[in-house]
Write a protein that binds this DNA or RNA. Sequence first.
DNA 1: AATAATTTTTAGACTTATCTAAATTTGTTT
DNA 2: AAACAAATTTAGATAAGTCTAAAAATTATT
Lengths: 218, 218
Amino acid sequence: MITLTEENYIKAIYHLSNNGTENVNTNAIAEAMSTKASSATDMIKKLSEKNYADYKKYQGVTLTEKGKRVAVNIIRKHRLWEVFLVEKLNFTWDEVHEVAEHLEHIKSDKLIDELDAFLEHPTHDPHGDPIPDKNGNFQHIDKIVLAKANIGVAYKCVGVDDTSTAFLQYLDSNGIALGTMITVIHKEPYDNSVKIQLKDTEIVVSQSVAKNLYLKKV
Amino acid sequence: MITLTEENYIKAIYHLSNNGTENVNTNAIAEAMSTKASSATDMIKKLSEKNYADYKKYQGVTLTEKGKRVAVNIIRKHRLWEVFLVEKLNFTWDEVHEVAEHLEHIKSDKLIDELDAFLEHPTHDPHGDPIPDKNGNFQHIDKIVLAKANIGVAYKCVGVDDTSTAFLQYLDSNGIALGTMITVIHKEPYDNSVKIQLKDTEIVVSQSVAKNLYLKKV
DNA sequence: AATAATTTTTAGACTTATCTAAATTTGTTT
DNA sequence: AAACAAATTTAGATAAGTCTAAAAATTATT
């Protein structure tokens, strides 16, 4: 049986490893889990013993195929619940994350399959992130970050990297949501801020905003 | 912070104490929780320290008002999720219990209030049990057990006491569901079995069935 | 009312996930 | 390549919830 804590570590490793592709440091895991490196080491050993991860002392970890399957399944559940919360229960996109963190650990294949069908098999969550299907396959999305967008080209907002309440509320209050049309007017080299054209207004966003907003050419 | 285990003990005590009214033995709690009496004692002490229960050594426990509030809130969540699973996700009434056991522990007032509204404020769960409202008030239901029903009177099935898969599937296969009309034809004193009239058929049910099926006069 | 049986509690131990502090390995400088 | 710094691991401790075995209290029986 897999524990809740093991699931959370696996999920953290998956995200830190760039979807299971790169090696991850002990310290990075400890920070992501808000714990100490010694605790992370203990858990890494355990995940390795249970074949969720490959690990050599002092060399960092990677997830095994088994570990990746666990991670993708949790992500699927998390994102489906987020869609449910926003579409059926009137949550806003900045409110869903915390509750979904708990719902994602409920174990029932029937529950998640039926939820998927009830929501009509959504492909993306409220933050624009793709929802893996039952077999763990993601629908690829060719998104770029606002900071790298070209001047004068029309883009559509398709996602965010930072799902913190503060960031999402900032976007809301500036009239940016998934689907919003954005054109870059000017990039300021001095502080890497970006002036963008929205429907009726022009606004300037800082570098940290520009690095966390995903766009797609239209 | 209340732990998952504490919540489950409180719920067990609530049920064993006949909705918080009677004193409960250590052994009964241990059995309900599938654990040993020594473990139950430890937890009872802890619940008492945290003011969820009143406890005197060797004298059993009762829930405090605080403890009852916790219990009723969990029951509310459990039953609302059961309605959701049956009405929206195509679960049958014998499949819901296990999943609801997990969902009931998700902590979010907004989640449960919105779920309640989404389901249009249901008053009873799929087994006929009343759902407490936000303030913890139950809608009283004047149900009697089949074993005590009178011969010749028309009743409607309004609930079950035993929610095990075996019992619910037995009812299904004999054409009994919530709302089914039932009239008692004969009570057999020898084994306390009961012959009942359904819509088109007559069947004989054993004492254990008759003691677990709730009816209401119509 | 004394003894037996049952119930309940205590004492000490185990597991999981965590911590601090110390030891070890790796890497980076000079 | 020696020495320092940073990252990682080990060792030993703690808290929650559980267990077994033994002790204590309550209840039942003769």
